[in-house]
Design a protein around this nucleic acid. Structure first.
Lengths: 210, 210
DNA sequence: GGTCGGGCATAACAGCGTTACATCTATAAC
DNA sequence: GTTATAGATGTAACGCTGTTATGCCCGACC
């Protein structure tokens, strides 16, 4: 899934083994356990494999980020519209939060700088941009429908992105999964209220409450 | 400043020296250079001093956080109200962003998890709560004036906190100081538009644009 | 059949946070 | 004034991290 293997599927592909091991460790043990030795051991090779195939830990993290941004963008693209003037836009915001909560470890690495010395490469920034473009496109569409009064689509997109990112990162950082069994969590209520308010403030004509 | 020295001001106080050195390194070289050895060298002692006075790097970071949260809360408390129904509330949001941009390194450690393995202690969470309470108080006041329609003050406070934190952390992460000489930056415009929209959406009666 | 090159393991390096041990100092007790 | 005790400190080491120099081995090519 994460890496296209060559023709023969049974031939051991060290690169794919390493990436799969890294993703599994990230998912199961969190980013703190994502060490070169740990990954190599799980992939069944020596630490040198990480350097042969990824050039070091930075390259491995890049590959993880690339994989994450692709899955993230897919999730946003598959978002179902909400019954609202901003429709798809709000649907993407909900899908954003859903994906982040379902992929905490990935989200922390992608958007919360969980891997210490890692500066995102150009390629990675481009991958992140694709997800952003999905959001921006919907902003442009909403403006063309005359629903939004703000001129600059990037400013509106950043406003929404910032709100969603901020609330989600706080929710992930506070780390209280505490499955509240159906009952809406405080963070979910805050998310909905904030999103509704921001939408109402961006619309050309403010709707009544409820 | 950061630590009350004992009676005689000329007597060398290792604890204060270490904390001052850590704060200076954080300010000048960023959190990546905040190592025990580096701090100890700059403070003019051995690494053991950090363990004697702070119990380890975690304790030192705790002290840094405590200092940061105090200065942060002070900045919020001194915020000047904006001409707007939400007045002080928006003033705090602006002061929040101003302080974060002026204290990037501190903000990264306090709110963006820049120090890898550090989980905030109870005391630190309490210090952060003080800043949050300043915001929450203004929300309660706004509700009592009938300006805000949402019942739950915590939900409203979290909505604003999330928006501001999200936009500010993105602005800091994108790291383009690029002194644009007077001209409003993209991030500043996004911040103002988002904050205005959120306010408008939270108000009991939506004002006209501009 | 010989040569070449790339994937890989071993072992080492520097740097990190941390700590066991010895030393040294300053204060308290007599 | 001498001794005793407790705490602060320096040295050197441990285990961990990312990284790499060295050499082996095996498959491809001529």
């Amino acid at each position: 899934m994460s890496s296209a293997r060559k023709a023969a599927p049974s031939i051991p592909d060290t690169r794919a083994d390493i990436l799969d091991a890294a993703l599994a460790i990230l998912q199961e043990d969190g980013h703190a356990s994502l060490t070169v030795r740990h990954v190599a051991t799980r992939a069944g090779c020596s630490t040198i494999g990480v350097y042969t195939w990824f050039g070091g830990k930075d390259g491995l993290v890049d590959a993880i980020l690339l994989d994450g941004f692709q899955r993230f963008a897919d999730a946003l693209a598959r978002a179902r519209p909400r019954k609202s003037p901003l429709g798809v836009l709000l649907g993407q915001a909900v899908a954003y939060r859903r994906w982040a909560l379902d992929n905490r470890a990935s989200y922390e690495v992608m958007f919360m700088g969980a891997v210490p010395g890692h500066g995102a490469s150009d390629e990675i920034q481009l991958a992140g941009l694709i997800a952003y473009e999905l959001l921006r496109n919907e902003v442009v569409a909403a403006r063309q429908r005359g629903v939004i009064h703000e001129d600059d689509a990037d400013v509106v997109a950043m406003a929404m992105w910032g709100l969603v990112h901020g609330l989600v990162s706080i929710e992930i950082a506070s780390a209280e999964p505490k499955g509240l069994a159906g009952q809406k969590s405080f963070h979910q209520r805050s998310f909905e209220v904030a999103l509704t308010a921001l939408e109402r403030g961006l619309l050309t004509e403010a709707p009544k409450h409820r």
